[in-house]
Amino acid sequence: MFGIPIQALFGQLLLGLINGAFYAMLSLGLAVIFGLLGIANFTHGALYMMGAFCAWFLLNLFGIGYWPSLILAPIIVGLFGILLERVFLRWIRNIDHLYGLMLTLGLAQIIEGVFRDQYGSSGKPYAIPAELTGGYNLGFMFLPTYRAWVIVLSMIVCFGTWFLIERTKLGAYLRAATENPVLVQAFGINVPRLVTLTYGFGVALAALAGVMAAPIYQVSPLMGTNILIVVIAVVVIGGMGSILGSIITGFSLGLIEGLTKVFWPEASSTVIFVIMAIVLLVKPSGLFGRAS
């Protein structure tokens, strides 16, 4: 097809889908946090990196493998996120949200600087768990088991988050608090606690993505920043208001990026930003965003 070997095409599409899975999970967390706290969480990339490092620590210091890490790392990093919210973010709730951006950027710099000082900027390998090694030959392409697992798991996590927020009572409280926190508090719901838990949840999502990414991209202090800026563009394209929007945009932009890598490799690192510029010109509120 178009002079491109079909193996390479599907290989890149798979890679794109994997990237898209991480974009979706990270932009989901960003969207949830932004919805309730009004903060563009620039610490998100650093926390994603911490998730990957947490899995690496658990393995190398305590011999705890991939499967427990998948649960433990998000809990540990999520608790760290809750700490951040309690200690820092709490104080800037009622001021211009741009300060939230600066504060979270500062926190990200601190976290990444400390990790870089300790571990340098080179990546550390993290082995694919034994159960997920190998792959399937689909005839037109080779599908590594681990990659298939990442795509399936991320879709389950994304759908689960959507269900939690759009279809459960807790999610209803959360959406209500996004619209009008004062009124929700007047109904007897502990909004500050809801805020803390939401932040913790968004952070845990980032950490989970980090653990899932560890066997694919190597664990490195810089892995967070590189992906964060792309995720930010994804969020602008999708519009931060919509959960389903973040998921769809994340996956499809990953695919588009993969396709670009096949047909015009030089443009693959910038294609998402170009799409963002075009979307802004056509529909400034984002594809799924509400006009503000």
Partner: peptide, 10 residues
């Protein structure tokens, strides 16, 4: 340097 910049930001 990055860490200290971050601290100043915060």
């Amino acid at each position: 340097v990055t860490v200290i910049q971050g601290v100043i930001f915060v």
